[in-house]
Design a protein around this nucleic acid. Structure first.
Lengths: 224, 224
DNA sequence: CATGCCGTGTGACTTTGTCACGGAAGAAGA
DNA sequence: TCTTCTTCCGTGACAAAGTCACACGGCATG
């Protein structure tokens, strides 16, 4: 069974209000389809560019990977978002230069490149929405660059933990390796940093878990 | 004496062909003006956003600066280009988050934000041009991020020298500090690296000069 | 219970960044 | 020409971060 765009239209419009201005003649098209993205599927540079993808559900992690295998997460795409790198590839006919990993099973609206360009021309709100997305990521990436180049590791780890516990939880189910991958450093570095945090009583470490995280203590390490 | 937009129109259209579709009623406006940007003038975050700026001449360096004073160059804007971070700020009403330094005396076309948005809506070619610019920088920044995080210093210095000598010159008039600022590292690090290159006979160092650069020898150090 | 994998801890070493100098090249002025 | 000053460069000692090699323990699986 495949999902029908028509059936999901309410959900699509809720997530992407800017698509409201698109008329029924476009929604009826056979080449605008819903696709399911399998979890843990990897997309390398330059693929999938026949379609622009708007994510309805799940999450996709965009990252860079070095020849040595070290990774760094650039950003995540969530339901209601789209991938700016992909957008600019389609619109600028340039290369794409990052990898994507589908973290949670994802559902997406696929729009053929040509049609996507047409929509960008025709629909003002949609265009503005896409532009905002791209701008947001541009700023995000410039801040990431800033962090990598100017901040210390303890500072970045503290910041990461601080963000992850923003919802109130004081425990995270994360391996050191996962954090290293987020921040673009090595697992040993994270292990040592966390260990030193533990010695200061800021948190407690067990296998695959970071518990008893004291957010207020973390603040001491936040930079800027 | 101020320069007249009308008088410079041929030059403007040559540098920005996509502006050709804009009719005379817009070119006659009093609020579209040419401005001269003084060299070494610094622009901090969030300024100048009442106008979108299209550069006709000169160069502007966009960079990040740390609390400690270390800098890293994000990219340069040249004649015929515009600043993507500024564009996205105007279109997305978000913050701007970088500094700019006018390196060479510059001449620019200033368009009020509102009118710029109007042009973006009305003129397809102009819109596509701006989008291409933004995309180009997004990719450039993601590659820079990659370099910072994954490449070695000798690799990055070699790459920098390689690019700077692409025109054929085997001598560069650059201080070590200038290179450090380009790459986002410390002057001492660059000094040591260049010294080691000199010991290998790849180049010759004198005050404010790097001479006898052997491009083919540099290739050994290029990464990827 | 045995096996194997995965996550973690650790020490030794290399690379990069920081700090504090000092010294030399060139510009400017007397 | 000599003096003074600024800018640029070199260096050593140290701190921070990344790399490499390996060991150990928890936990799942058969």
């Amino acid at each position: 069974m495949t999902l029908s765009v028509q059936a999901e239209l309410p959900r699509i419009l809720e997530l992407f209000p800017s698509l409201a201005e698109i008329g029924p003649e476009n929604w009826g098209r056979e080449d605008v389809v819903l696709i399911e993205l399998p979890p843990n599927h990897l997309v390398q540079e330059g693929q999938l560019l026949d379609y622009a993808v708007l994510l309805l559900d799940g999450t996709i992690r965009m990252f860079k990977i070095s020849p040595g295998g070290r990774e760094i997460t650039l950003y995540r795409i969530q339901g209601g978002e789209c991938c700016p790198l992909m957008m600019t590839s389609i619109l600028g006919e340039s290369e794409y230069e990052a990898s994507a990993c589908i973290e949670k099973p994802s559902l997406a609206l696929a729009i053929p490149s040509g049609l996507f360009r047409e929509w960008m021309d025709r629909y003002r709100g949609f265009r503005q929405y896409i532009f905002k997305m791209v701008g947001k990521r541009l700023i995000l990436m410039s801040n990431l660059l800033d962090s990598i180049n100017f901040k210390t590791i303890p500072g970045r780890v503290a910041e990461f933990l601080y963000e992850q516990t923003a919802s109130g939880a004081d425990t995270l189910a994360l391996t050191h390796d996962a954090i290293a991958t987020e921040l673009g450093t090595a697992r040993e570095v994270i292990s040592r940093t966390l260990k030193s945090f533990e010695k200061e009583g800021i948190l407690a470490l067990t296998r695959g878990r970071i518990a008893e995280i004291k957010r207020d203590e973390l603040e001491r390490y936040l930079e800027y």
